[in-house]
Design a protein around this nucleic acid. Structure first.
Lengths: 255, 255
DNA sequence: TATGATGTTCTACAATACAGAACAGCATGC
DNA sequence: GCATGCTGTTCTGTATTGTAGAACATCATA
């Protein structure tokens, strides 16, 4: 007798859909805007938003006069991250790796067909090539990121397709858009122990990723170094990958 | 005609209260447990939780068979943090400060009577004195943290009381529990430009904090170094404070 | 086998969410 | 200056739907 997760309170479900309208690209929304997007009644949306404002999770942006998620929402983040296993070990090793390799390092987990980024670290001397920011909660497709491909390459072949979007949208010229290409790439990644994203998601950004496991062998996520192509030349990939692999191994040993 | 933020959808408000039951200290909850805590009907809570599960924001912890917030909730974090001003500048300077001073550095903002921590950085060589973790979304009272007191010390005197809890609960022996003591401390902090938390919140942890402003003079938060008392001896406070103050000044200049 | 926890299902009734209309405020246009 | 079209906001009657309570399932422990 397991909770199947049915939608039993429709108004609540609606409200969650309203909250999902707020994205990094569209963080400021008006009532009518939301109502149109979700095909809901204006007053319906207004009542929901008013309640969210009353509870402190949504606020009015005084400059645009639109609504946005407020900082209170971040309180949930800490509840979640504070219970994630191995956080201290992973972050410590990531920070060391950042400093040793002089690159940004990212850690993320599989989340449906996407990577959900959790932590990122920067090298001790941060150049202006990096936009320094927390990526916690950011998402990206599995199929076109080194982190995603590293995780996929560690899955049993029959499980991979479950985590692929129906259509492999090309973000750049080099995005792998056919399942055959991708599977070949995953096979290669699995055999050599690391994956490479050659500007497949963002033009000019190259990443090298590895799967991360716990001591018991369980896959707990993926880790990658990321940077502008000119800072990660072809002949450096092997070295970076070796460092990542040994860091991943160290995480495994210390969990 | 301003949205006053009335509770217009009671079921939604109830649900938010349910979500707030999940805390860092009690991240795993059962249906009955929540129902008791909020004095709600079991089936009522069940319906809410089921809906949250359906939407992906709550999941069952397979080991405890209780419910918990799921990683999907973190997606909101990125929506919020990606719109926070000056993130890149603040984090870059914090990371440098961490390395130079060899201490953890924290940044947070005022949030009612509490500090809401946003970013934290660690020194390049992380000793085992630190539990490395992201503090984003963590809260602490303003009155007994260096970060909080730094922010309070930068407020007009008449605004301070608005941001104080009714009762200044003592967390340790050194917690300032009278408003008079606190106001004296804030006056001192304002005059010298930095605040000190002498194990007032957590036993054995000492912090030194400064307010952080934008170019236009607007207070955007506070920043502190934090560490075990034995690593921050009395005769080092001045030096750390000077570095914090100049870092805060640099942030101001670069916004 | 009994007892007392838990989570889950079901149903009937009344509370309440919501659609639609109306209004307010503020632009823009002519 | 009046009209037009866009917002956000208020209000109300109705029927949708949230919810209480009872019943049941499951798993403990006594």
């Amino acid at each position: 007798m397991e909770n199947t997760g049915e939608v039993k309170v429709k108004s609540l479900y609606k409200c969650l859909k309203i909250l999902e309208c707020f994205t990094a690209k569209t963080p400021d929304l008006g009532i009518t805007e939301i109502a149109k997007k979700l095909d809901l009644n204006k007053s319906n949306v207004f009542n929901m938003i008013s309640t969210l404002v009353a509870a402190g999770y949504v606020e009015k942006n005084p400059t645009t006069d639109h609504y946005r998620l407020s900082l209170k929402m971040l309180e949930f983040s800490y509840v979640i991250t504070s219970r994630i296993e191995y956080q201290a070990i992973v972050m410590q090793i990531m920070q060391r790796l950042s400093n040793e390799l002089n690159h940004a390092v990212l850690f993320g987990v599989m989340h449906g067909t996407q990577v959900l980024y959790l932590y990122n670290t920067y090298p001790k001397s941060i150049s202006n090539d990096y936009l320094v920011r927390s990526l916690m909660g950011e998402k990206a497709p599995l199929y076109c990121t080194s982190l995603g491909k590293a995780i996929l390459s560690a899955l049993p072949k029959e499980e991979v397709s479950v985590h692929l979007d129906d259509h492999l949208v090309p973000f750049t010229k080099t995005t792998l858009t056919s399942v055959e290409e991708l599977m070949r790439d995953l096979k290669l990644s699995a055999s050599r122990g690391y994956s490479v994203d050659n500007s497949e998601h963002e033009q000019g950004i190259r990443c090298i990723g590895v799967p991360v496991r716990a001591r018991d062998g369980r896959l707990i996520g993926g880790m990658c170094v990321s940077g502008p192509v000119q800072h990660i030349p072809d002949d450096d990939i092997e070295r970076l990958a070796r460092n990542l692999i040994s860091a991943s191994f160290e995480i495994r040993n210390r969990t």
